[in-house]
Design a protein around this nucleic acid. Structure first.
Lengths: 184, 184
DNA sequence: AGATTTCGGCATCGATCGATGCCGAAACGA
DNA sequence: TCGTTTCGGCATCGATCGATGCCGAAATCT
């Protein structure tokens, strides 16, 4: 699928670093077809982001469905490792890499990805609040700080993977992060 | 100092996102003076990176001088929080933000920053190896994994700060990360 | 004060950016 | 087989990229 190829380009080079020429070459279509199908570079990126959420990034949505808070945390962090170290695909997380620093033309996409990461955090926080209500986590646990800790580690995993850290090394980091539960 | 202004621009917008026009405007000098003083955009960035290491990023170099491994970890993570949430300055870490995803013109700088982060990791690992030799850490501790855990959390702190997380929230994340020591 | 040097403002270089119009070839239906 | 339609290759748009040369004003030295 052409969208999957575009995903790899955005994932590897970020929003502004991915040129239309590099996108059309990877997708195997012409510039005219690209604009006829997606309208603009930004709309193409939005379509790619949806694709990412349902593919490599699906672990975030699935993790909150785990039966226990402990399993939520484990599936979330291990999903981040797996998605960020797939052989033959770009390293790290699209949402972290693509727009951490941008010029003037990328500010809209940067805001979108910032919201995207914030939504991930909010979903985890709400899941841990439910765990408290169900007695799965202690009543004095703080769902905000637990969720923040997990998203911070996951973001760090993405940066480490981008820098070339191996899946094995990052899995050990995740094991360390999950040694004590609840973490606070 | 003009270098400090250039640092803020690269810090906020990354290497490719920082245009010469935005740099000269922030530095208050002309393009001609910029090239006379630094030679090229890439050489200017290298000078900025050195400045960053001795200013906001100095915590990394200082932390390994702490007397105990525990204090090394604490000063390192708290330094990452403080440097990444300074009011009136760009959020996060220059080394993480500036070149996580780049086009063709930024690959050299991307490699430089990847090496820079790897050097941080190596310095921590060597410090923890020394702690093991001195009996400050258990003989069966793994300096590689402990250092990797800390750099991963610090990288995550940088991403979180870029996304708008507060210093207080990130300090609590660091407290959680340091609750158990050694972490593994 | 006059001569010399230094440096910033401006215009501009070739290249590339995202985006679009033109045009010929291929595919489809009658 | 002919007429119609769709779509990709190509050239090009204005804007901006990093980088440079020109030229006049300000500062320095004798």
């Amino acid at each position: 699928m052409a969208l999957e190829k575009a995903l790899d380009v955005f994932w590897e080079h970020g929003y502004e670093g991915a040129s239309i020429a590099s996108l059309t070459e990877a997708m195997g279509i012409s510039g005219k077809s690209l604009y006829a199908a997606f309208g603009s570079k930004e709309e193409l990126f939005l379509a790619v982001l949806q694709r990412y959420e349902q593919g490599p990034g699906a672990y975030a949505r699935k993790s909150v469905l785990a039966p226990t808070a402990r399993e939520v945390a484990r599936t979330y962090l291990e999903g981040a490792v797996r998605a960020g170290t797939q052989p033959g695909r770009p390293a790290g997380c699209l949402g972290v890499r693509a727009a951490l620093a941008v010029g003037v033309t990328g500010q809209a996409v940067q805001a979108i990805l910032t919201d995207w990461r914030a939504a991930n955090h909010a979903a985890l926080r709400e899941r841990f609040q439910r765990a408290i209500d169900e007695g799965d986590l202690p009543a004095d646990a703080d769902p905000e700080i637990i969720a923040r800790y997990l998203t911070t580690v996951a973001d760090g995993v993405s940066v480490q993977a981008t820098g070339g850290a191996s899946a094995k090394a990052l899995q050990r980091v995740v094991d360390v992060a999950l040694l004590h539960w609840p973490p606070a």
